[in-house]
Amino acid sequence: MKRMGVSAVFVAILRRDLRSALRSGSEWANPLLFFAIVCTLFPLGIGPDARQLALLAPGILWVVALLASMMATDSLFRSDYDDGTLEQMLLSPMPMYPLVLAKILAHWLTSGLPLCLMSPLLAVILQMPMSGVPVLVVSLLIGSAILSFIGAIGAALTVGLRKGGLLLSLIVLPLYIPVLIFGSAAVKSAIDGVVYLPTLALLGALFMLAVALAPLAVAGALRISVDQ
């Protein structure tokens, strides 16, 4: 086998993960379905009053998108762990950082991005004022990427455990809080007609921090899970 450069491996992992996600379908469709169903539950739970729904919509959309993204995270390293690919990655002389980054990027493209694209539809259903929709999409674009990075840490820690799913949520949800706060606040500001760019900038700062640090924690956590 000829030696591959870091960028070639990055692209190879990205392409492989995207292809398998598209083939199975459930990987990208299930979080979307979850997002849609749970958003439907809210009007049924709190009543159809349009004004009340409009008030709650930014928070509801953000919380449900966050939960959907977390649900998708559970399977991030599962198949690679089961078939031994992960062990091969850890044994290879490649630095782990770009490999982990490729996995996370592929995961975001198949779970976070579809959520962002579907959010305007659900915003309409939840009677959210149109002025908030662009900011909702942008905040979800940045925010769901951060969620993928944080969720990857939890997924890496729990991948070796038989009952990882619920545990993952206990570990990861407290760490999601800043993203939720800034994301929903940006949407609310846009609806209220006040400045929302600083809030989006804060999300961007969190994103930079996540890109820089989270893959390191993920690599360490994967090594622990595989060595166990």
């Binding site: 820690l157 729990t158 455990l161 009952k163 545990l167 570990i171 956590a221 899970s225 166990q228």
Partner: peptide, 15 residues
């Protein structure tokens, strides 16, 4: 959740 004590310690340390 971990059965292996060493892995539990390391995973919790990362977290």
């Amino acid at each position: 959740a971990f059965e292996n004590r060493e892995a539990a310690a390391k995973a919790c340390a990362v977290l």
